[in-house]
């Protein structure tokens, strides 16, 4: 990512300034942004999900320092939701459009030059983008909606433990920041899917990954070095994932989490779906790779109740 150096300099400057400034250490700790925030809706249970999704996303991101912590002025950001399936928002196979819309708005407010949205869909892209509600929401928020072109993926050396090269989408790799913002859902092979597995949507030739998903996903995540992710658990898909289609499998949770540790976010998602994170291959291997901690409660965690 291009901005790493810039961010490093900025962070160093902040640290430098703070050591010079005569602020008590305690106050500084209190002001420090959380590593992860879980925002739960505790207001009217019948509240419109568009409304709650927006509030929860805003509050969760604010608690981890706001997107200004990750987006620099003039950055191009790729927002990567699940748009893989030709399903409607209530079917919970794709990210809630309002979550996507809010993230885009906050990116632009944080000074991003452009925000692009796109996914390497499994169903037809036009139908998935449209019926997920994400195309309309993203355009309304001012993002560019990109239909990925299968002929443009370029083989890139990632030098992972399991994967040496994979075809990545150049337009995504040219962005300064990728924000994974999946919906938490059931998945037959890996039992659950969330932030890390969501990166399967920036690559091609991914079907063979199913022969060893935990390591392939860890290799991919390690290469991409994500700095922030948003987990949409406004409603989750508890069975027949990742495609879904039956509303009986959908559970309304009215929860959004944001954080800098994707393994921790995935562990939280696993718990929401009724799994023990220690039993989920992608999470265990993610921790083994040093990509994060499955014990998300050990992080600087902030839990918010929004009404």
């Amino acid at each position: 990512m291009k901005s790493t150096r810039r961010e490093f300099l900025k962070t160093s400057a902040v640290i430098g300034a703070s050591t010079l400034a005569p602020i008590p250490a305690l106050a500084q700790a209190a002001a420090a942004p959380a590593d992860m925030c879980i925002a739960r809706w505790k207001g009217d249970a019948k509240a419109n999900m568009t409304e709650t999704a927006r509030r929860l996303t805003e509050e969760a991101l604010k608690a981890v320092g706001g997107l200004g912590r990750f987006v620099n002025k003039g950055d191009v950001v790729w927002v990567k939701p699940n748009i893989g399936w030709d399903r409607t928002p209530e079917q919970a196979a794709n990210t809630h459009p309002e979550v996507v819309k809010t993230i885009i708005r906050l990116c632009l407010e944080a000074g991003a030059k452009a925000v692009k949205v796109g996914d390497n869909t499994c169903n037809d892209a036009q139908k998935s983008y449209k019926n997920s509600g994400i195309e309309a929401a993203a355009k309304e928020a001012g993002a560019e909606v990109v239909y990925l072109d299968k002929n443009r993926f370029a083989e890139v050396k990632i030098g992972g433990k399991r994967l040496d090269t994979i075809p990545l989408y150049p337009e995504i790799m040219e962005c300064n920041l990728i924000i994974s913002c999946p919906v938490a859902k059931h998945h037959s092979s890996t039992r659950m899917t969330a932030c890390m597995k969501n990166f399967m949507g920036v690559i091609e030739n991914r079907k063979k990954f199913h022969q060893d998903l935990p390591y392939c996903i860890a290799d991919l995540t390690a290469f991409l070095k994500p700095r922030i992710a948003v987990l949409d658990a406004t409603r989750i898909l508890t069975a027949h994932g990742p495609t879904g289609g039956d509303l009986a499998d959908v559970k309304v949770m009215n929860t959004v989490a944001a954080g800098i540790d994707l393994v921790a976010l995935d562990a939280f998602a696993a718990e929401l779906l009724g799994n023990d994170p220690a039993q989920i291959g992608t999470i265990v291997v993610g921790q083994e790779y040093g990509l994060g901690k499955k014990d998300y409660k050990s992080l600087n965690l902030k839990e918010l109740e929004i009404a």
């Binding site: 998945h187 199913h210 495609t243």
Partner: peptide, 11 residues
Amino acid sequence: RECLVCEEHCP
């Protein structure tokens, strides 16, 4: 080997 891509896509 594990796979199950088809089950995943089944609509």
